[in-house]
């Protein structure tokens, strides 16, 4: 993927497929420590330990005996290439948290890309999912909680005009934050 924001969109799709009603997306850029950490946490159905094992198995992608996912191995490989890694914590019936880390300045790391486009894409087509987004850059942060906006929108949040407004709002806040884009 050309942007980490696209991987985040792909992770959010997993959450939605798992029946999540809330997705918490957190990006932490700690430039002093040279770390970029992304966590995507949901309250969906979770995974059985055996499933969890297989999706993070290093030889997972070479298996051909059954239909396997592509998204998690792809992201894991991207992180491992950048002095980082991917870990998943999951509890059946409670939810799943995927955490992925990169060396911030690694030459092979894809740029973060447009979180405004990613969040707008999630909100435009998922009527029942709430998104809590937090992007930290050193000691500053931008926080976006779809519940607060849904309240203001009073039932119009799904409308394309509102989605466009939200996208521009997030893009502006991201620019003001001054982190990766």
């Amino acid at each position: 993927m050309e942007e980490l924001a696209l991987h985040i969109l792909d992770l959010a799709q997993n959450c939605i497929a798992a029946g999540a009603s809330e997705i918490a997306i957190t990006i932490i850029e700690d430039r002093a420590a040279n770390r970029l950490t992304i966590t995507v946490a949901d309250d969906g159905r979770g995974m059985e330990p055996e499933m969890l094992q297989s999706v993070t198995d290093p030889f997972f992608t070479t298996r051909t005996t059954r239909r396997v996912g592509l998204g998690l191995p792809l992201l894991q490989a991207a992180a491992e290439l950048c002095a980082g890694g991917l870990t998943i914590v999951s509890t059946v019936g409670r939810g799943t948290t995927v955490r992925v880390e990169f060396a911030h300045d690694h030459i092979d790391r894809a740029p973060l890309g447009s979180m405004a486009d990613t969040l707008a894409a999630i909100l435009a087509v998922n009527f029942e999912v709430e998104v809590v987004y937090r992007h930290e850059v050193d000691d500053r942060a931008f926080v976006f909680d779809s519940r607060e906006l849904r309240e203001i929108c009073e039932g119009t949040m799904q409308h394309p005009k509102i989605i466009l407004w939200l996208k521009e709002y997030i893009a502006l806040q991201e620019r003001l934050l001054g982190g990766e884009q």
Binding site: L70, L74, P160
Partner: peptide
């Protein structure tokens, strides 16, 4: 309906969805 699987996203489905939303608005 836009296909938003991993391959779809990698191929540009987010931008396709964005263009649809914008045009409709």
């Amino acid at each position: 309906v836009v296909g938003m699987g991993t391959c779809g996203i990698a191929a540009g489905a987010r931008e396709t969805l964005g263009a649809l939303v914008q045009e409709i608005a």
